[in-house]
Simulated scan of single mutants.
Amino acid sequence: MPTLRYFAAAAEAAGTDHEEVDGVDVQAVLTSVRRAHGPRLAHVLEHSSLLLDGQYVRDPSTELSESSVLDVLPPFAGG
């Protein structure tokens, strides 16, 4: 099952820093966690960057494997 890793505000909104989520592509996984964690995480996801196995991903139809790791990186303050 793909693993989501949450950082900063995403971890706070999800109530965890990681979880395994069933899904065949990025969109399916994000839809699942939006339903599971509600509007607060949904809002954070709208403003977050996603890294799939260390590579920036923008296309929600990008397929995931059982061993995929999807990082949710909200905007960070500072620099």
Score class of each variant (00 low, 15 high):
residue 17 D to K: 02
residue 6 Y to E: 07
residue 49 S to I: 01
residue 16 T to S: 15
residue 25 D to R: 00
residue 16 T to N: 08
residue 64 L to W: 07
residue 16 T to G: 09
residue 9 A to E: 15
residue 60 P to T: 04
residue 11 A to Q: 08
residue 69 V to T: 13
residue 39 P to Q: 14
residue 43 H to T: 05
residue 19 E to N: 05
residue 19 E to D: 11
residue 12 E to I: 00
residue 67 S to E: 15
residue 1 M to V: 05
residue 57 V to D: 14
residue 77 A to E: 14
residue 23 G to K: 04
residue 62 T to K: 07
residue 39 P to G: 14
residue 41 L to G: 04
residue 24 V to D: 15
residue 46 E to P: 01
residue 13 A to L: 05
residue 40 R to C: 07
residue 32 S to A: 15
residue 68 S to E: 15
residue 62 T to I: 02
residue 14 A to Y: 03
residue 58 R to M: 12
residue 61 S to W: 05
residue 70 L to Y: 08
residue 68 S to N: 10
residue 13 A to K: 01
residue 23 G to E: 12
residue 54 G to R: 01
residue 3 T to V: 11
residue 26 V to H: 09
residue 54 G to K: 00
residue 76 F to P: 02
residue 23 G to M: 09
residue 74 P to V: 02
residue 16 T to I: 04
residue 79 G to T: 11
residue 14 A to D: 13
residue 76 F to V: 11
residue 17 D to I: 00
residue 68 S to K: 02
residue 16 T to F: 13
residue 50 L to C: 04
residue 9 A to I: 00
residue 10 A to Y: 11
residue 26 V to C: 10
residue 78 G to K: 06
residue 8 A to E: 13
residue 53 D to Q: 05
residue 45 L to R: 03
residue 46 E to A: 09
residue 40 R to T: 13
residue 41 L to Y: 06
residue 62 T to G: 08
residue 21 V to L: 08
residue 38 G to F: 12
residue 26 V to S: 05
